[in-house]
Amino acid sequence: MMNLTLRIWRQKDSNSKGRMVDYKVTDISEHMSFLEMMDVLNEQLVNSGEEPVAFDHDCREGICGMCSLYINGEAHGPDRAITTCQLHMRSFKDGDTITIEPWRATAFPVIKDLIVDRMALERIQHAGGFISVNTSGNTQDANSLPISKINADEAMDAAACIGCGACVATCKNASAMLFVGAKVSQYALLPQGQVEAKERVLNMVAQMDKEGFGNCTNTGACEVECPKGISLENIARMNREYLKASILSK
């Protein structure tokens, strides 16, 4: 069992000024998940008549991309290739002080406490992260199109992005290039994505810039912290797609 000090960002709403507040939690099992530990804290706060700490979570299986949290200076905490909900308390020691902050980016304004508005990523998706298909009954079976194994695998790897925003949170420039690179790549590698390829990359990059994300300086931090292991190759592919589209577009 562990006794911990939690240093947590508290902010009433998007218009209020926030601050770091210290809390003590006791008898925390090392088998608990990090979010279960947060639940224990919130029970404690509710029982003492205080406002519980607001934080995003949903599936708690590392799939939905809802959980976030910047823990001890790292997106999703100290472990690799996991989301915050998959982080366990065995990664910490008795007596530790754990600093917990929301994702920090101008494009991700804080809504309350540890919850940020990540709709900027959705708007980038809406700008071109799709294929237009007539679904009126004559849709071609996707498996009837020949696709090389390498391309299919790489497209699948890119599609593994859950849009959690850890890449933005960890990048020193708050750049969303890994997210956009993955979304562009998953279609650029498949025949279904070719028809709208030029418009897709131009529109998604334009929307990314409009949202106020920073420039990629290729530090590679996003790849290291990504819970789904999205590779930097996707950013390079997006850069190629963008250059090609810029030169060839009418």
């Binding site: 240093r7 960002w9 770091m20 910047y70 001890n72 200076g73 790292e74 100290p78 600093t99 902050e101 920090r104 980016a105 101008t106 494009a107 960890t170 020193k172 420039n173 708050a174 750049s175 106020g212 994300f213 920073g214 420039n215 300086t217 530090t219 590679g220 931090a221 290291v224 912290e225």
Partner: peptide
């Protein structure tokens, strides 16, 4: 532009954990 992209800095940031 990069500085504008993060107007509020982290209280604790461990950049050495993931980049040179």
């Amino acid at each position: 532009k990069n500085r504008k992209s993060r107007s509020v800095k982290y209280a604790k940031n461990n950049g050495a954990a993931n980049s040179s």
